[in-house]
Every structure is written in structure tokens, then in C-alpha cells.
């Protein structure tokens, strides 16, 4: 088994706060939401598990009352869809059988295509790497049923990626590891968003 400190990328002398920060950053990075529509979803899940375990182990080792794995569970993995009209399609997607999933979806007549159909279509395209198609399907699913948390999460996540804003990664564009730049780019992004909105209105 790997050294838990190595997994979190911290030294053994790191303070509790440093460990917590490192853990939070990694948990953000490997969060299943980031990889839900990626062909590497299972790899990310494994990584997430490794990070969770490492953090728990460090907490156990250091525990003297004040430490507990308070984040355990909050960055849980695993998908929890309550009900689905397309269990076979989801199964195919999970197993990476994208062509089969696509065939099943295409076999569904136009009139029966609901928001979930568009969502799953987006999922297949996204896992294939056909991002632009995936985006339009996710967008459609979200428009048809904005209250569905699964669809809105997928759509919002994709929007973040289209803005090159990945949680857990520093993609400032002009400088690395510079928090001042982060603020600047944050402002710039906010500004861009405002501009987009005002243009759209």
C-alpha cells in the first residue's frame, strides 16, 4: 500500500491544516462530477478512493480527539440515479460500450425522446470525445428539464470546461501558482460573463 502522505503529496511533518488543504484540493480535482462524462470515470473514481483512504489513514494515525475524518462521505463517489427509463443504455455507457448504447438510443422513436434521452446521448458523445455534439445534447436535456440535478450538473460542468475553469486545477492562463492572477482572471471571467449577458439581452 502507498504511503498516505505521498498520496496526498504532503510531507509527514505537514500540519493538520496543510493536510486538510491538500486533501480538499485533490478531492476537488478527482471529484466524480469532473469525470462523470469522461471515458476515464472509473480511473478517477479509483483515485478518489485512494485519496479518501489516505486521508482517513492519516487522520487515524494522528487522531487524539481533535481529528476525525469529517470530510468522509462529503466527497463520496458512486452515481446515484433514482430512476431511469434507460437502464440498458446506462449499463452500456458504464461498461464503455458506446456504439451499443448509441444504437439503442437511436432505436427510440422521435416522439419518445425525453430529456433523459438527450442527456444520455450527450453522455455517449462526451465519452467518445465528441464534445461539441455532447454539449448540444446536454444543453437540450437541461432546457427540457432544468430541475433535474443530474442534467444540470452535467451541463454546468461542461460549461465550466468550456470556460477552461476546472476545479482543482490552476488554469489561470498567464501565471501559475499566483493567487493575484487568479483574482484577476476571476474578475476577467466575471466581466466576460457580464458582457455576454448584456449582449444577449
Amino acid at each position: 500500500m502507498k504511503n498516505p502522505y505521498e498520496v496526498l503529496g504532503v510531507s509527514e511533518t505537514a500540519t493538520d491544516e496543510e493536510i486538510k488543504t491538500a486533501y480538499r484540493n485533490l478531492a476537488k480535482k478527482y471529484h466524480p462530477d469532473n469525470y462523470n462524462d469522461s471515458p476515464l470515470a472509473d480511473v478517477a473514481e479509483e483515485k478518489m478512493k485512494e485519496v479518501n483512504e489516505a486521508y482517513d489513514r492519516i487522520c487515524d494515525m494522528r487522531r487524539n480527539g481533535s481529528h476525525s475524518s469529517s470530510y468522509n462521505g462529503s466527497y463520496g463517489t458512486g452515481n446515484s440515479y433514482t430512476r431511469t427509463s434507460y437502464p440498458d443504455v446506462r449499463q452500456y455507457i458504464m461498461n464503455g460500450r458506446l456504439d451499443d448504447a448509441m444504437e439503442l438510443l437511436n432505436g427510440i422513436p422521435d416522439t419518445n425522446r425525453d430529456a433523459e434521452w438527450y442527456f444520455l446521448m450527450g453522455m455517449v458523445f462526451s465519452r467518445k470525445g465528441w464534445n461539441d455534439q455532447a454539449y448540444s445534447y446536454f444543453q437540450r436535456a437541461y432546457q427540457m428539464d432544468p430541475s433535474n440535478p443530474e442534467f444540470s450538473a452535467a451541463f454546468n460542468n461542461m460549461n465550466a470546461r468550456r470556460a477552461y475553469n476546472n476545479p482543482g486545477y490552476n488554469t489561470a492562463g498567464t501565471g501559475m501558482g499566483c493567487s493575484g492572477c487568479d483574482i484577476c482572471t476571476g474578475m476577467l471571467c466575471a466581466n466576460c460573463l457580464c458582457n455576454c449577458c448584456s449582449r444577449g439581452c
Binding site: 476515464l40 470556460a163 477552461y164 482543482g168 488554469t171
Partner: peptide
């Protein structure tokens, strides 16, 4: 921009693993 960002994001997310 959106399409380029998206591709770059995917590359970065894969590399992150």
C-alpha cells in the same frame, strides 16, 4: 474558444489522473 477550452480541459483532466 469554447471548443478549444473544452479540448484542453479534457487533456488536463486526463493528465491529472
Amino acid at each position: 474558444q469554447a471548443n478549444l477550452n473544452h479540448a484542453l480541459s479534457d487533456a488536463l483532466l486526463s493528465y491529472g489522473l
